[in-house]
Amino acid sequence: MWYSAKDLAEALEVLSSERPVVVGGGTDLFVHWPRRKPAFDGRHWLDVHRVSELRLVNMTAEGIVIGAAVTAAQLWQDARLNAVPALQQAARVVGGWQIQNRATLGGNIANASPAADMVAALAALDARVEVASQRGTRMERLTELITGPKRTTLEPDELITRIHLPSWAVGMRQVFLRLDQRGGTDISLVSAAVALRVEDDRVRQASIAVGAAGPVPLRLPEADAHLVGVRLGGPAEDVEGVADRIARAYAEAARPITDVRASADYRRAMVEVLVRRGIRRLLEEWKG
């Protein structure tokens, strides 16, 4: 049975009674449908892309709240979200235009692919995920909600409703970088999101996340902290030294796999390259 919910209450009710498969844009679920179909035999479906509560973007004093059914295309087109360029850049690289018109932020998270691009950007921005069911609502850090490839803490009656970005993330210098292999649609071999708060020519806060280089997005707050206090316009070696050190820390901590797309050693080396590039780009080239 296919349910198309118009509001949250309706969606949660169906979730509670039918334990359906949640459908956002379907760009993960329906890939190669005729061959996948047998695996879903007898399941119910809940289409959430019209649930009004899930489609809003709000700028609040606490930060930014983005509905789970907001699509990648909406993310990069919404001028308010220019305040979080890393997320917009990630949204604009997901698939191509057609995919972006359907792919939702909630789907990118719930699908829990290690290569998910928007997830990597959200992880650097310390996103929290609001999860609802008829039993209640909970907030979880994105990096805790995703527990492994294709694995999350979501219960069968739960729905991702909103994604919360903290106020400090707004207006930070940010960049999202990804390594892929062609100009057509492709999947990240490695991605990195870097966000820095710079005040009075000094880095006051730094937050980095690496995607596709392990089962979950990689965060190393201790490593990021090396950036705090770094002076812009200071000796180039200082900036380079810090960037190198942090990049190496991420490369060492990464747990990449070898698959048909790339080998683990290449991915690990690329973690270092992308993190270093991200940091240097923000320190040396950023134009606000």
């Binding site: 190669h32 292999q181 062609r182 100009g183 057509g184």
Partner: peptide, 22 residues
């Protein structure tokens, strides 16, 4: 890509043909 006679990259995502930007 084959491994023991089996093609490993069975989609147009992993068999990469050039897109317009390439």
């Amino acid at each position: 890509r084959t491994h023991r006679g089996a093609v490993q990259n069975l989609t147009l995502l992993d068999y990469r043909m050039p897109g317009v930007a390439d």
